[in-house]
Each structure stands twice: as C-alpha cells, then as structure tokens.
C-alpha cells in the first residue's frame, strides 16, 4: 500500500520536474522581447478595436505610438485628447493636437423631400444597390437608406430612421472612428469638427448635378447658386461641382448662409430657435 503511494508520488514529481525543465528551455529559446510600454499604452486605450485610428486594433496603435518619434498622424478618435495625453505621459512625448470630430450625413433626402422614382427589390445593402443602379430617386448622389453605415457602427451611434429612411447619428455615442465613412458606398458621411454644444452648420447635400436636375430630384438639394458663398464673410464656403461646402474650421456659426439658402440645403443643428426660418429648417430635419 505505502509503496504504491510512494511510487505514485515519485513518478509524478519526476514528470513535473522534466516538464518544467523542457518548458524552461523552450521559453528561453522562443523568447520575444517586447517593450513593456506597449502593454502600458494598450491598457489605457479603449479596447474597442474599431480601427478608427487606421490600425487593425488597439494593440497595433500602441505599438505604433511606442515606436513613433512624434505623435503626428497618430490618434485614437475614440479616446480623444485625454487618452492621447495619458499615452504621451507614459511615453514622455508631446501629444499632437487633434480636433475632435463627429460623423455627419451630407444628405437630407427623406421621401418627403426627394420623391421616389422606382422601388429597389434586391439584397438590402447599399453597396449592392449602388453597384447596380443610381438609386431609387432622381438623385444619384444621395443616401440609399439600406443601412450599410448602421451595420458598420460598433458603438450603436447610428440608426436608420424608419420615416426619413436616413441614418440618424447620435452626437453623444459617435466616437468618430470612421467606420461608417468607409462603409458608405456613396461617400456621403463626413467627419466634421465638433463645436461646443454639438452645434453644426453644414450643407446637407451631395448632389453634383446642375441646379435644375438637382432641384427636380430633391426639394432640399444644393443647386450650386453660390448665394451662401457671397454672404459668408469668413471665406468658409466654397463651391465645387455645383455643390457648396462649408469648412467647419473657418465657420463662425453666424448662420447667415442658412437664411440665404433658397432650398434650405444648409442645416443648423442644436441652435436656439429663431423666427420663421428655424421652423422651416426643423421641418426639413424631421
């Protein structure tokens, strides 16, 4: 009896010892040196692995941050300035200043504004519809509404509104990772600089057609008339391909262009209400 116990103990101990020796040598042989700061930096990143920084995941950004001499071009849009400042502190570098941004849809073509001319019946994905034909309205630039952006969003920040058939982006939840920008086959989602109180003034249209066809296709299309360009005192608005664009960096939120626009293509969001015009604009948003 006791000998059985003894043999068991000895043989098991021997086995454990041999395994330990083998494991030790293997570990030595295949040891890979890794900068411990990579783990440290990775720990403070959001761990969303969303790819918004341009890398495959948070680990890859951490490696890039440790390797880089300056933080130029490296930014975690999800964590924003606080996370980048913390990373800079760990690595003893200075963080690059990157303005926080938010996704904005450059289209306001709800069924009320933009009449449907045909009915799409294929697989319900924008990328498939877009490779086949120019959308179910007269406007071939605007939102199709089949939700490729919604499916791409990992932060639950974007949902297709069942009435307007347009994506609604939540300013609080959007982390500006850019997944929807990449997912949209029409390239009509833009990451715009965030302003205080989430205020926004932008041309909610992407139609590059001439004024006539654009207006016929959609009530709130930018017709490229250039009135906003003239009224802007800050050179923030440019006109290209019959389409006005407001530079968020130059815009001072004076709201003159909003009043001037004959088709209500320029939207003002999160501003205190004002007379008449505000009601019209609000109606268009809905």
């Amino acid at each position: 009896m006791s000998s059985t116990v003894l043999i068991t103990i000895i043989s098991l101990s021997l086995l454990a010892f041999i395994s330990a020796v083998i494991l030790y040598f293997v570990a030595q042989k295949f040891k890979v040196y890794e900068d411990p700061r990579i783990d440290e930096v990775q720990a403070i990143l959001p761990a969303a692995n969303c790819g918004g920084c341009g890398f495959a995941g948070c680990r890859n950004l951490a490696e890039a941050l440790v390797k880089a001499d300056t933080f130029e071009g490296l930014n975690c849009p999800v964590g924003g300035a606080p996370v980048m400042a913390e990373a800079a502190r760990i690595l003893g570098k200075t963080p690059a200043v990157v303005d926080p941004t938010v996704a904005v849809l450059l289209c306001n073509g709800s069924p009320d504004n933009r009449e449907r001319t045909s009915h799409y019946d294929g697989a319900m994905e924008c990328r498939i519809s877009n490779s086949l034909y120019a959308g179910n309205t007269g406007c071939s630039y605007g939102c199709l509404g089949y939700g490729d952006c919604e499916r791409s969003c990992k932060f639950d920040a974007l949902h297709i509104d069942p009435l307007t058939l347009l994506p609604v982006i939540s300013d609080e939840k959007c982390v500006a990772c850019g997944a929807c920008v990449k997912a949209c086959p029409l390239h009509i989602i833009e990451l715009r600089k965030k302003a205080k109180k989430d205020r926004k003034i932008y041309v909610a249209c992407s139609n590059c057609d001439k004024g006539g066809p654009a207006r016929r296709a959609c009530k709130v299309a930018c017709i490229g008339c250039g009135k906003c360009v003239k009224v802007c005192a800050f050179d923030a608005i440019t006109l290209k391909d019959n389409l006005a664009y407001i530079d968020a960096k130059k815009c001072t939120f004076c709201r003159k262009c909003v009043v001037e626009c004959p088709t209500n293509a320029i939207l003002e969001i999160n501003f205190p209400p004002r007379k008449e015009k505000a009601e019209v604009a609000a109606e268009n948003v809905n």
Binding site: R116, S118, H119, G122, L132
Partner: peptide, 9 residues
C-alpha cells in the same frame, strides 16, 4: 400606378 421594381438579375 405603382413604381417600377428594380432588382439585380
């Protein structure tokens, strides 16, 4: 009266 259906082949 209705809109034409469009779908891939």
């Amino acid at each position: 009266s209705n809109l034409l259906n469009v779908s891939p082949s």
